[in-house]
Simulated assay, not measured.
Amino acid sequence: MTFSLVARCAETGMFGVAISSSSPAVAARCAYARAGVGAVASQNITDPRLGPMGLDLMQKGLSAAETIAEIRKQGTFIDYRQVLVVDARGGTAIHSGPKALGIWSEAQGPDVASGGNLLADPAVPQAIVDGFRAAKGHLGDRLIAAMRAGVAAGGEAGPVHSAGMRLVDAVDWPVADLRVDWSDDDPIEALARLWDIYKPQLGAYVQRALDPREAPSYGVPGDE
């Protein structure tokens, strides 16, 4: 019911997850990232515990491959799960259990991993990886481009209704956590519009948290 990618920006060290599904509010259950550590997508009959587990393992120094090996040991009903991981060095690893739903597949390389289930075509994850690699600019822009490439390759077998994107950078909180929890139209394009609005303000929101004295004006009525 889902296709996604986890990724690292080799230039900035920023991590991100982008995901879409026919289920509601997919990013609330499936997208996990921690600054300086890595990113995890836990999907397909989702166990949300696997996201924080993966991040904790990588924070202890395990690589992406070691993290997936440990998740396979510690996770419950692991045959039903699909988990994607990227670590602080850009290493990637994927677990796709044999009981993943429908047509499922995966693709990965340095700094990016993609997987999906109930897909229209098994080539979708590779199209997502290729779309990410071909895109330029901010990590958020590259994640959106990758998801659009997945849609162009067929996407999910049925209509998708939710999408989300989480980005982490040098602070303890997500610098962007954008979600379309339900849409009868195109949640990925709705997410892209949200990103277009949020991207120019991202740095200002971080600055306001760190030192509001140096932050730009808020741009609201009464603000000078």
Rank of each mutant, 00 (worst) to 15 (best):
A39Q: 04
A39L: 04
V40K: 07
V40G: 09
A41M: 03
S42T: 14
S42K: 06
S42E: 10
Q43K: 01
N44V: 04
N44W: 00
I45E: 13
I45K: 14
T46H: 00
D47G: 01
D47Y: 00
D47H: 01
P48G: 07
P48K: 06
R49D: 14
L50N: 02
L50S: 02
L50H: 00
G51D: 08
P52G: 10
M53W: 12
M53R: 15
G54D: 12
G54M: 05
L55M: 11
D56N: 04
L57M: 11
L57T: 10
L57W: 01
M58Q: 12
M58D: 06
M58W: 03
M58P: 04
M58A: 10
Q59N: 11
K60T: 10
K60P: 06
K60W: 06
G61A: 13
G61F: 04
G61N: 12
L62K: 07
L62I: 08
L62T: 08
L62S: 09
S63Y: 11
S63D: 13
S63W: 03
A64R: 05
A65P: 03
A65L: 12
T67N: 10
T67F: 02
A69C: 06
A69G: 12
A69L: 12
E70W: 01
E70F: 00
E70Q: 13
I71D: 05
I71S: 05
I71R: 01
K73F: 09
K73E: 14
Q74E: 10
G75F: 00
T76E: 12
T76F: 02
F77W: 09
F77H: 13
I78Q: 06
D79R: 09
D79S: 09
D79P: 05
D79W: 03
D79Q: 11
Y80S: 07
Y80V: 08
R81H: 09
R81Q: 08
R81C: 05
R81L: 03
Q82E: 08
Q82S: 08
V83T: 14
V83S: 11
L84R: 07
L84H: 14
L84A: 15
V85I: 13
V85T: 08
V85A: 10
D87F: 01
D87E: 10
D87N: 08
R89Q: 13
G90W: 01
G91P: 04
G91R: 10
G91E: 15
G91D: 09
T92N: 07
A93E: 11
A93W: 04
A93F: 03
H95L: 14
G97W: 00
G97Q: 05
G97R: 01
P98I: 12
K99G: 03
A100Q: 11
A100C: 15
A100P: 11
L101Q: 14
L101D: 15
I103L: 14
I103K: 12
W104D: 05
W104K: 06
W104R: 05
E106C: 08
E106Q: 13
E106M: 08
A107G: 05
A107D: 08
A107E: 02
A107S: 13
